[in-house]
Design a protein around this nucleic acid. Structure first.
Length: 903
RNA sequence: GGGGAAUUAGCUCAGUUGGUUAGAGCAUCAGCAUGACACGCUGGGGGUCACUGGUUCGAAUCCAGUAUUUCCCACCA
């Protein structure tokens, strides 16, 4: 065996294993019909993105799941991809063009797209290569990009099909308009932010009643010029007489009617609402009901147009707000201004307030809402943690039509052509098809592209080549669909998760108006959804570029090693909760790896016989001499099985954090701190059985740990020569608890050894406490033990050698007398420490304290056991337990009292 | 306004259907070069389980209410 250094140095092995895995095609998609399939689709990162902590967590989890699946004898694949990131990329390219003096709007669509593609090729896709270096085990040869020809076909086919099925329509409606990126947005892309603003009270004169006026509250005086009416609630007694009259619009002066509409809230402000049909969703609805004119005073970029009147034309909306206020004040039409906090919608990408704007867009009325609902509520798709189901269902219950067109160039261009010089509002003049019309010269294509999410929602179908049947079978759709688990953040539950489910319900299989439960089950895109937490900094803030509170993942790799980083991040990720990032945990991850490294070094140290070649578990077990097995061997092997059962359950339920803690606790506490230490005495004698037990534990740990820390485990697996000819352990089978039980059958493991070892542990702990309290010098000391019975005596006698080693004692002796030494009670008897000088008052104080504590417990038990209700209602084992405790504590107290009386 | 989640040691969190004296890791304190590991080992201290009621023989756990924190949805008057 080669010489391993004291410290595990991650970077020495990472590169090697990354290339090895990919050279050996460990992660290539294959189909093995004898095995269960397992498939994860990577949520495609934005082509514009760079690796951040969220990706790290998300992809580490996916990697853990897929690697674990491979060890569980599943035929597993993980398909990576990349999202073209519509607005995001377009904004980036525009910025770059402007910086180099090019007006992106003027160069035309084709040239812009050339620039965009060039940008993508140069800067795009950083993440995937960064992920590769983090050890993710996806099939990099099989990357899907949302603008690929095949994938685009899926996106466009979906559009065309939905149009044919009557779900897509073109409409002139109020949409969320981003004046910065000059495109419409979906409701989901609007972020509400609380803003400190002002509530202006504006005075409108009543035309028919000179000298009379009404006051109206508004936060947006710049839209007054677009007012088409003034509305009150029909039930509002105060204003009943006004309905049907007119009032004077104070800016861009005109007479506008006073109308009554239910949409007005009597209790807000003065109870009067100004109606600006082109610039508010409610207002637009009111205007439609009352056939009001629509006065659109805004340009797409947020400046005002001629309809606003000469004095405002060309000015920005916020400049106009100030000017309007000034003017109203001069006119005496502004009786009151109050400070006011309200929520304002911001454009997610542009980060400016969105403008509700009337415009013509493509809308989708969601299909298969009921089915998408059932898929989750009936448990065909399981959410982890389950509570996100409510959020999902609530969204579906309140779903609004989706504006899917974007006024951008980068993306999937809407597959609709209009007859040249014809009326576009008449659908007779449309050609809606994946293929362009044959006499293309007579047609012009819709200028817009689809919302990026209207392409990513096809992900589970598109990656498998839908709708092309040939491609689908080539991509093994039948075998891998539905995919196993989707790992993503809850922040895109509406954007993406819900929509993927809807798309799958609608498009998989024949077109049907509704689906049976069986059909829903067949169409689900994934069986489980694992929602990760959101990574926050230690102040609980989201990690973001603007706050600068996100560490650079690759720096962390350099500091803690990839394995340490992976382990650390999972350690701090309790399931179902946001996680507070703490670099301390990464240190723990690194330390864990180092501990594993050294435990391995220990298990291989000083071995005279040759390393194994190709070692199946059975061969190692066969090296054990059953007669040589001692209590610790029995206990550690029994514990290994117990721990594996726990671990398997946790992994099955996606409790990664808990699983890591179990494995860490078994490895560190049971194995390193107890078994390794206890076995040192026997290892002096080249005990084959002990070597074999170490080997079994190490081998199993490496297999179980591999999904979490793939580099170090593969390295050790090979150094340890569990496999001959330096093969990676990636696709090896990991024995289950059941397999272990079978393999250990011939060993006749005694499970009661676990309890006995627990007693020994406590005995040891208490003895050590006594020693550390009363230690007089660095010399080794002597203990005298007074066991309460034969059984305890025998346990201790068998263990004497180990005890001496573990406590570092000069001598252990047994006694049946009460000695004048400092003492402590243990489950295996009273222990006396031989000292030259005893501090009697101190000892007396200690004993009295202990006696008092016992007395309290005894009292408690007595009270409980004298309670008739308790005796008649509590289950037998609880009563028995209480009695046993009373007995034991009474006995203990008597013992201590005796010692005390002798002092 | 509607809904979700959280509240347990200084910090981060476990605590399974109520049941013996509430756990872990980190931090802290003390000790230790003990045949892998100081990225380590050993031991100690530290909790009125947010609060108030209720159900129960028995409540961190179940119920009701209160408080605080937090997230999501709705909302440019």
């Amino acid at each position: 065996m080669e010489d391993l250094g004291k410290v595990f140095i991650s970077e020495r092995v990472e590169q090697k294993w990354t290339s090895k895995w990919h050279d050996e095609c460990c992660f290539d998609k294959t189909v093995d019909n004898s095995k269960e399939s397992f498939c994860i689709l990577m949520p495609p990162p934005n082509v514009t993105g760079v690796l951040h902590m969220g990706h790290l967590l998300n992809n580490t989890l996916q990697d853990v799941f897929v690697r674990r699946a491979r060890h569980c004898n599943k035929c597993a694949t993980w398909i990576p991809g990349m999202d073209h990131a519509g607005i995001s990329l377009q904004v980036k390219v525009e910025k770059e063009l402007i910086q180099s003096g090019i007006n992106p709007k003027k160069i035309g669509r084709e040239m812009f797209l050339d620039y965009a593609r060039a940008w993508r090729d140069k800067h795009g896709g950083m993440i995937l290569s960064q992920l590769k270096s983090l050890g993710v085990s996806c099939d990099f040869k099989n990357q899907i990009y949302t603008l690929n020809e095949n994938y685009s076909l899926a996106v466009l086919t979906a559009f065309v099909e939905l149009y044919k099925r009557g779900y897509i329509y073109r409409g002139k409606r109020i949409v969320n308009w981003c004046p910065k990126t000059l495109t419409a947005l979906s409701d989901e892309e609007v972020i509400m932010k609380p803003q400190k603003s002002k509530l202006y009270c504006v005075r409108y004169d009543i035309v028919e009643r000179p000298g009379q006026f009404i006051d109206i509250s508004t936060t947006r005086p710049e839209t007054i010029m677009g007012d088409a009416a003034i509305a009150v609630n029909p039930d509002d007694e105060r204003y009943k007489g006004l309905v049907g009259l007119h009032c004077k619009r104070p800016l861009n002066i005109a007479d506008i009617p006073i109308i009554a509409d239910q949409a007005v809230d009597k209790n807000f402000g003065t109870g009067i609402l100004k109606i600006t049909p082109a610039h508010g969703a409610v207002d637009f609805a009111v205007a439609q009901r009352h056939s009001l004119p629509i006065i659109d005073i805004l340009n797409p970029d947020g400046t005002l147009n001629a309809l606003a009147g000469d004095e405002f034309v060309g000015l920005d909306r916020f400049v106009v707000r100030e000017k309007a206020v000034e003017k109203l004040q001069m006119m005496g039409a502004l009786p009151k201004v109050e400070e006011y906090e309200n929520n304002v919608g911001f454009s997610e990408r542009g980060d400016v307030p969105i403008e509700p704007r009337l415009s013509e867009q493509w809308f989708l009325k969601y299909p298969k809402i009921h089915e998408a609902r059932c898929a989750v509520s009936k448990g065909f798709i399981k959410f982890y943690p389950k509570r996100w189901e409510k959020t999902y269902l609530h969204w579906l219950d309140n779903i609004q039509d989706w504006c899917i067109s974007r006024q951008l160039w980068w993306g999937h261009r809407i597959p609709v052509w209009y007859k040249k010089n014809s009326d576009r509002s008449n659908s007779d003049n449309w050609h809606v098809s994946v293929d362009r019309p044959s006499n293309i010269a007579d047609w012009e294509q819709d200028e817009d592209v689809l919302d990026t999410w209207a392409s990513s929602w096809m992900w589970p179908l598109g990656v498998f080549g839908w709708p092309n049947q040939e491609k689908m079978s080539q991509e093994c759709f039948q075998y891998f669909y539905p995919t196993s688990v989707l790992v993503t953040g809850p922040d895109i539950i509406f954007f993406w998760v819900a929509r993927m489910i809807i798309a799958s319900m609608e498009f998989l299989g024949p077109d049907k108006k509704s689906l049976s439960d069986e059909e829903i089950k067949e169409r689900i895109p994934f069986k489980s959804v694992y929602f990760t937490g959101i990574i926050r900094d230690k102040f609980g803030r989201k990690m973001s570029k603007s706050l600068g509170n996100s560490p650079e993942p690759l720096d962390l790799v350099a500091k803690y090693g990839t394995d340490g980083l992976r382990f650390g991040i999972l350690l701090s990720a309790p399931s179902g909760q946001d996680l507070i990032f703490n670099e301390e945990n990464l240190k723990l991850g690194r330390n864990f790896c180092n501990k594993l490294w050294n435990a391995f070094r220990f298990s291989r140290i000083n071995r005279s016989y040759k390393p194994y070649s190709q070692v199946p578990l059975a061969d190692i077990v066969a090296k054990i001499e059953v007669a040589d097995l001692d209590i610790d061997d029995h206990a550690i092997l029994s514990n290994l099985i117990k721990f594996c059962i726990t671990f398997e359950g946790q992994m099955k339920n996606f409790e990664v954090n808990a699983a890591i803690n179990s494995i860490s606790s078994f490895f560190w506490n049971e194995y390193c701190n107890w078994y390794v230490e206890a076995s040192k005495v026997r290892l002096r004698g080249e005990n084959k059985t002990v070597f074999a037990v170490h080997d079994i534990i190490m081998r199993q740990l490496l297999l179980l740990l591999n999904p979490f820390i793939p580099f170090i485990t593969d390295e050790l697996w090979n150094v340890g020569e569990y496999e001959h000819n330096q093969r990676s352990m990636q696709n090896l089978y990991c024995e289950t608890a059941k397999d272990l039980q079978l393999a250990f059958h011939a060993l006749n493991l005694d499970e009661t050894s676990i309890a006995t070892v627990l007693q020994l542990k406590e005995f040891l702990n208490l003895s050590r406490r006594l020693i550390s309290q009363c230690r007089e010098s660095k010399e080794r000391m002597a203990l005298y033990i007074c066991p309460p019975n034969e059984v305890a005596m025998n346990i201790l006698k068998d263990y004497t050698l180990k005890l001496q080693q573990l406590v570092g004692l000069e001598k252990i002796d047994f006694t049946d007398k009460i000695l004048q030494f400092p003492s402590i009670q243990t489950p295996l008897g009273i222990v006396y420490l031989h000292v030259t000088q005893i501090n009697t008052p101190e000892e007396k104080k200690k004993l009295t304290l202990e006696i008092n504590k016992l007395s309290k417990l005894i009292k408690l038990s007595e009270v409980q056991l004298s309670n008739k209700e308790f005796l008649s209602r509590a289950p037998a084992h609880i009563i028995e337990g209480s009695k046993k405790m009373l007995r034991e504590n009474t006995f203990k107290r008597e013992e201590l009292c005796k010692i005390l009386s002798m002092m």
